[in-house]
């Protein structure tokens, strides 16, 4: 399903980033980093329109020839980015949304852990397995 899942802190440094073909990890890092441009653009655009009922899901950030990059931002401005292979055409918007929702739930669990310092890289097995499930599901 997803080929890369990233959690990015409010300050835009990565809290968690994992990608499937490990050899192209660097490429995904670049992709995710660049996508922050669009995330910021969308956040600021959304902020203007409706401050209260903000939609967390940002939709497709930008497509590339091979991948589609989707974004999601929590209320605490933590960003989730999911990169999906373009050839995987069976994925609909709803499925992407539910992936983000799952990710958000798992992230909330991580944050609830009293031993986790907010701002530290995420090293949670439970979170890892949630992400793994997203990545394996299709491939």
């Amino acid at each position: 399903m997803a080929v890369c899942v990233a959690v990015i802190a409010k300050e835009n440094y990565p809290l968690y980033i994992r990608s499937i073909p490990t050899q192209s990890e660097l490429k995904f890092h670049y992709t995710v980093h660049t996508s922050l441009d669009v995330v910021e653009e969308k956040i600021s655009a959304v902020g203007k329109v409706m401050a209260d009922q903000r939609e967390l899901y940002l939709g497709l950030l930008y497509p590339t020839e091979d991948y589609k990059v989707y974004g999601y931002v929590t209320n605490s401005k933590v960003k989730f980015v999911i990169v999906v292979d373009s050839s995987n055409t069976s994925l609909r918007d709803n499925e992407i949304r539910s992936m983000f929702r799952k990710l958000h739930n798992s992230f909330t669990d991580v944050m609830c852990n009293p031993f986790y310092n907010p701002g530290d890289p995420i090293q949670s097995k439970a979170f890892d397995s949630t992400v793994s499930a997203m990545m394996v599901a299709s491939s």
Binding site: E11, N12, Y13, P14, E25, L26, H29, Y30, H33
Partner: peptide, 13 residues
């Protein structure tokens, strides 16, 4: 930019 935002892999590259 990579340094400021703490992206280690692009930074190394």
């Amino acid at each position: 930019s990579y340094t400021a935002e703490g992206w280690s892999l692009p930074l190394t590259h």
